[in-house]
Amino acid sequence: MREIFAPMRSVIVAFSGGVDSTFVLKVAHQTIGDRVLALTTTSPTMPAEDRESALTMARLIGARHLVLESNELEIPGYASNPLNRCYLCKHNLFTVCEAKAAELGIDVIVDGLNLDDLNDYRPGMQAASEKRVRHPLVEAELTKAEIRELSRAMNLPTWDRPASPCLSSRFPYGTTITPEALAQVSAGEQILHAMGFRVARVRYHGDVARIELEQHEMPRIFEPANRDYVDREFKKIGFRFVTIDLKGFRSGSLNEGLVLASSPPKP
């Protein structure tokens, strides 16, 4: 990773504050210092804790950090939630990065795509290719597990942080994404987090909330007091029915059936 960054005169890191982009920013900053700029775009699709993580991690690393508002729901076609929604989002993100790089005279844009991501449905990779965004973690052939291990060795608090994709990933493709529905999903996940469920997804199916939890945590939500509390609180935020997915949490569950049917371009 250091060998990758060393020849770069200046870099923008598309920075979410998650495990991967935090590790990228840390190594880049260690290697070329203040010639690195972390750029974060925030919008209604970004979980509140992600914004806080981005601010905290950039401050901890000591990197320059720029936060820009960018509402994905204003991107033509995005709110209808097509199969290439991730492409539309990433194209917008990298367009913002590209414009800022041109304004500031920065040479290279990088992101936090890792080797494992190549095995998932990732239409955003096409946008990265179009905008000539580099993937240092892929170039260094680092898997998610290795990134977590290295992050722990570097005392980065994100080393064991759960994955936290944008809130739009809670909506089945073809389901319209609205500010109100995003707020419902966010509120539902905050309820579960406050109860101590560290990893929780609220999948939006109109009147129905489908909750995904880690398998070892599932017995706790069926305890009568917890079950009644979740049912009551979820109905307060607008859901009519609350269900538990018996298969438990799995990242990208709404992509199931799409991975084998698609062939995203590999960087």
Rank of each mutant, 00 (worst) to 15 (best):
L83R: 09
L83W: 02
L83E: 12
N84G: 07
N84K: 14
R85C: 11
C86T: 07
C86P: 03
C86V: 09
C86R: 06
Y87S: 08
Y87E: 08
Y87T: 13
L88S: 12
C89D: 10
K90E: 03
K90F: 04
K90P: 07
H91T: 13
N92D: 12
N92H: 15
L93K: 14
L93W: 08
F94Y: 12
F94H: 12
F94W: 08
T95L: 12
T95P: 05
T95R: 12
V96R: 14
C97A: 13
C97Y: 02
E98C: 14
E98R: 15
E98W: 09
A99C: 07
K100Q: 13
K100N: 10
A101S: 10
A102M: 14
A102L: 11
E103F: 03
E103I: 08
E103V: 09
L104H: 10
L104G: 10
L104R: 12
G105P: 09
G105C: 05
G105I: 05
I106H: 09
I106P: 00
I106M: 03
D107Y: 11
V108E: 07
V108I: 15
V108D: 09
I109T: 11
I109V: 09
V110N: 01
V110C: 06
V110Y: 00
G112E: 08
G112I: 03
L113G: 12
N114R: 00
L118N: 01
L118P: 08
N119K: 10
D120F: 04
D120K: 09
D120N: 12
Y121M: 05
Y121A: 09
R122G: 06
R122K: 06
Q126T: 05
A127M: 10
A127Q: 07
A128H: 04
A128F: 03
A128R: 03
S129E: 15
S129A: 12
E130Y: 10
E130V: 06
K131D: 02
K131P: 10
R132V: 13
R132Q: 14
R132M: 09
V133M: 01
R134H: 04
P136N: 03
L137D: 02
L137K: 02
E139C: 01
A140M: 11
A140F: 07
E141D: 11
L142H: 07
L142R: 05
T143Y: 05
T143D: 00
K144A: 04
A145N: 10
R148I: 10
E149T: 00
E149A: 15
E149K: 12
L150Q: 12
R152T: 04
R152I: 09
R152Y: 11
M154V: 06
L156M: 11
L156A: 04
T158H: 05
W159F: 14
W159S: 04
W159Q: 08
W159M: 07
R161L: 13
P162I: 02
A163M: 11
S164R: 06
S164M: 04
S164Y: 05
S164D: 00
P165N: 09
P165H: 08
